[in-house]
């Protein structure tokens, strides 16, 4: 196990990035490890770009240094690339493949790059795991389980300093009874999706 585990969660305000970071942090407590997270609230949450950090093990503060991320999990492809400063060559980059086009493209004439370009760029900076979390979530039974898919994928990596069941149980104990089954499905399918790509790499 690494002495320090650094995870960066990226996405768009409203996509549940802060909630995902909180759940990972709680899993750290349940897994009996030292854990710090950091997040940005307020102005940054009205549809803006959002990043959270989750650190476990022998760490004293909440921020991840440049090139320090073991995993980047992004709920949106361009956002994965935006936080590439945290990557080193072996960083696992797990990203949802569904773009959310910012209003600056429609209004300001900015350009959203093609997914192909984004992915080939991401591959230069780490191990890329593109996952269609929306589709998997739909198959699992509810689109709102998208982040459980991505957290499942994260649990499929070997970076968490506790068993993946701890993360799953933490997610389940923090959601209403009626959504437990679909989230469990989403989590397991996310983990499988990760492992399937892993085999090919």
């Amino acid at each position: 196990m690494n002495k320090k585990v650094n995870i960066v969660l990226a996405g768009v305000g409203g996509q549940g990035v802060v909630t995902a970071a909180n759940l990972l942090g709680k899993a750290g407590i349940n897994g009996k490890v030292n854990v710090f997270t950091s997040e940005i609230h307020g102005m940054a949450q009205r549809g803006g770009s959002v990043s959270c950090t989750v650190r476990m093990g022998d760490v004293s503060g909440p921020l991840v240094p440049n090139g320090g991320a073991d995993v980047i999990v992004s709920t949106e492809p361009v956002e994965a690339l935006r936080y590439i400063t945290y990557a080193h060559k072996k960083t696992k980059i797990i990203t949802d493949t569904n773009p959310l086009i910012p209003f600056t493209v429609a209004v300001g004439g900015e350009i959203y790059p093609s997914l192909e370009d984004i992915f080939s760029e991401l591959k230069m900076y780490g191990e890329l795991y593109p996952i269609d979390a929306l589709k998997i979530a739909e198959n699992a039974g509810a689109v709102i389980t998208r982040n459980s898919v991505l957290l499942g994928a994260l649990a499929g990596t070997d970076v968490l300093p506790f068993p993946s069941e701890v993360l799953l149980e933490t997610i389940l104990e923090n959601i209403p009874e009626k959504y437990k089954m679909v989230n469990k499905n989403a989590f397991v399918q996310g983990m499988n999706a990760y492992k399937k790509i892993k085999q090919k790499i």
């Binding site: 305000g13 549809g47 770009s49 090139g67 361009v78 590439i84 086009i101 900015e110 350009i111 760029e121």
Partner: peptide, 21 residues
């Protein structure tokens, strides 16, 4: 410096400031 020079995307990314909902 124990931390590497950060990677920088060669693609120009669209900015994503917060906006009225």
């Amino acid at each position: 410096n124990p931390y590497p020079q950060p990677f920088e995307s060669k693609l120009k990314l669209p900015s994503r400031p917060p906006s009225l909902c």
